[in-house]
């Protein structure tokens, strides 16, 4: 039913269509055709993915600074990283961003999807309107707008002050500026919402009717039917949103005026990687950082996949 399940099983499970063709003659020709059709992807994979991955793994253990030829330094980059307060800070900032932003975004997406799923009147319109921010959220324009809206004396400050909680502008305030970025990602809840909505539409109505006959209230219905039924979609959203959040760059760079400050408060991981790699030319160190990011993302993915056995329900007999 979902991408993820599909992905996991793709390697193992023979497809009905595949078995049908397997026994036919002309298999060799299919191999040739297959690889011919695949050739752009294979070239791309080798030149732009696999090759660079090998190279960056190598750089990670060298002192490469663009000017010298890389010299092997063993684990130096990694030990330096763990001792580096700015690296620690960037990890802290990124984790906070992911841990606060992603759940908020998904909760809002799910909440609004549930709301929209209740009525058909106006649904298409709202769905489209709520989705729009996801398309423009990544643009530099919105970064500028965000900086303005969260400045001293702008709408957010005035609203907050109106409720008696004066903070001033968020963008200059090291304690608040990260929430400005969190707000920006939450604002783009439309994309996961659309996926939730599609998932909700696939929940068979009979299940609700049966539950109603058993006297279940809305909460029970949500907990016992909706949530399990959409758990694959939820899993998909959690996985993709988390992975994306770890890689935030543009919005932090633009909102913080390219410095990822103040006081490194928006120094997200990729921003520090950029500074080390492209500003200080510490390509070895930056490559080591990139591999740590890869490991972190892989770890999170693995944990999510492991945990899905406990809470993700796949329909029996889904293809």
């Amino acid at each position: 039913m979902t991408l993820v399940k599909d992905t996991v099983s793709a390697a193992r499970r023979p497809r009905p269509a595949a078995t049908a063709t397997a026994g036919r003659p002309g298999r060799r020709r299919d191999n040739l055709a297959g690889y011919l059709f695949m050739s752009p992807w294979i070239a791309g994979f080798l030149l732009l993915t696999a090759g660079p991955m090998v190279a960056s793994l190598y750089f990670a253990f060298t002192d490469y600074n663009l000017f010298n030829s890389p010299k092997w330094v063993g684990l130096d980059n990694f030990t330096r990283m763990f001792d580096d307060p700015r690296w620690q800070k960037s990890v802290e900032v990124t984790v906070r961003y992911v841990v606060i932003g992603t759940p908020l975004k998904l909760l809002l997406a799910l909440g609004v999807a549930l709301l929209l799923a209740q009525s058909r009147r106006g649904q298409a319109f709202y769905r489209a309107a709520f989705y729009a921010p996801s398309l423009i959220g990544a643009s530099v324009s919105v970064g500028f707008v965000w900086r303005s809206l969260f400045s001293d004396g702008a709408i957010v400050d005035r609203t907050q002050t109106f409720f008696g909680w004066h903070v001033g502008g968020w963008v200059g305030n090291a304690d608040w500026v990260l929430y400005c970025l969190v707000a920006l990602t939450v604002w783009q809840f439309g994309a996961p919402m659309v996926i939730f909505l599609a998932g909700l539409k696939q929940v068979p109505r009979e299940l609700y009717e049966a539950a109603e006959m058993d006297g279940a209230g809305p909460f029970r219905k949500f907990w016992n039917i909706t949530l399990p039924m959409i758990s694959p979609v939820l899993f998909f959203n959690v996985l993709l949103e988390t992975i994306h959040s770890f890689q935030i760059f543009g919005s932090a760079y633009v909102v913080s005026n390219t410095y990822c400050g103040p006081a490194d408060a928006t120094l997200v991981y990729t921003c520090y990687l950029y500074q080390q790699g492209f500003r200080n030319a510490q390509m070895g160190f930056a490559s080591a950082m990139a591999w740590m990011l890869l490991l972190a993302v892989a770890l999170v993915t693995a944990v999510l996949f492991w945990s899905q056995k406990k809470w993700v329900h796949y329909e029996e007999g889904a293809r």
Partner: peptide, 9 residues
Amino acid sequence: LPYHVLLIP
């Protein structure tokens, strides 16, 4: 895969 692993090479 995070794009940043590929960025530098």
